[in-house]
């Protein structure tokens, strides 16, 4: 009895959560105006894929999709490289003021991102990087959260492995590349997913630094679409579907490692 109640609640919550997602997909293939009828429909009467065609032909979404891809993959790669180096160093290297420096970095987590946006924008503007990919790459290169995550994971790597590599003749760089990075794979995948999804879905920062319409990312382009085609719900939903597909694909493909990473981080950290 108790079990079936739990299952019922779980299914109910699942359906409620899934409903908007389902409606988004469903509305994206409804004919124009069908999504706004009353009573609202959950499934389309007739399938109409013209909105997808419109997005890629008239509205030139390919360009924005490409921007989002370059930015998300770029930020993810840079952040994995730098965060893993810093996290490994904080976990395994001995250097002066290590603990103090790490505490200082952690304490900066309490500063809201919005507070840093203006000074960051001004710095990038002075460097002439506004409306370039670097305006998003550079601020996203390292994150305290990423460093923390890698550091906690790297603690679980025995020192003797690093020492064995030293005895085997490896340089510090070779130890990092050939021993530490492969061992950190689960946590790197987790951090990579977080970063990729975060960057892909980020709206505010690309909106601030990408003022040129050619440099828009998907969420910014989609927001623009909303203001221009406010009545066209089906077109909006088609745009939303296109936006979440890459994230969904990456997430599902790496799900195995992602869960492993989260678990290992929590247990061994």
């Amino acid at each position: 009895m108790k079990k079936s109640l739990v299952i019922f609640i779980a299914v109910f919550v699942g359906v409620i959560t899934f409903l908007p997602f389902l409606w988004m997909i469903s509305a994206s293939v409804m004919p124009s105006g069908a999504a706004n009828t009353f009573p609202p429909r959950i499934f389309p009467n007739k399938f109409d894929f013209s909105h997808y065609t419109t997005l890629f032909t008239r509205l030139n979404l390919t360009k924005y999709l490409l921007n989002s891809m370059i930015i998300s993959f770029g930020v993810t790669l840079f952040s994995l490289l730098l965060n893993s180096m810093a996290g490994y160093a904080f976990a395994k290297f001995r250097f002066a003021k290590k603990k103090g420096l790490f505490k200082f970095l952690l304490s900066s987590l309490i500063i809201p991102a919005q507070v840093t946006m203006l000074p960051l924008f001004l710095i990038l503007k002075n460097l002439g990087l506004i409306n370039t990919y670097w305006a998003i790459f550079i601020p996203g290169m390292a994150s305290i959260f990423g460093i923390f995550l890698i550091r906690q994971y790297a603690f679980s790597i025995p020192d003797s492995l690093i020492e064995a590599a030293k005895m085997d003749g490896a340089t510090e760089m070779q130890i990092y590349l050939r021993v530490i990075l492969p061992l950190c794979k689960p946590i790197l995948v987790t951090l990579g997913l977080f970063t990729f999804m975060g960057t892909w879905n980020d709206f505010l920062w690309p909106l601030i630094v990408m003022t040129d319409a050619n440099m828009y990312t998907m969420p910014v382009a989609l927001a623009n679409l909303m203001s221009e085609h406010v009545q066209d719900t089906e077109l909006m939903m088609a745009g939303s579907v296109i936006t979440i597909i890459p994230v969904l694909v990456v997430f599902l493909a790496l799900q195995k490692y992602y869960i492993k990473g989260i678990m290992m981080g929590s247990v061994k950290g």
Binding site: P158, S160, L161, E163, A164, A165, K166, M167, D168, G169, A170, T171, V179, P182, L183, K185
Partner: peptide, 20 residues
């Protein structure tokens, strides 16, 4: 002299084999 240039090899208590 760093370990790699001492021409020595070491066997560790916990084996220290590279798991990957």
């Amino acid at each position: 002299v760093p370990p790699k240039d001492r021409d020595i090899a070491m066997v560790f208590q916990n084996y220290a084999l590279y798991p990957h």
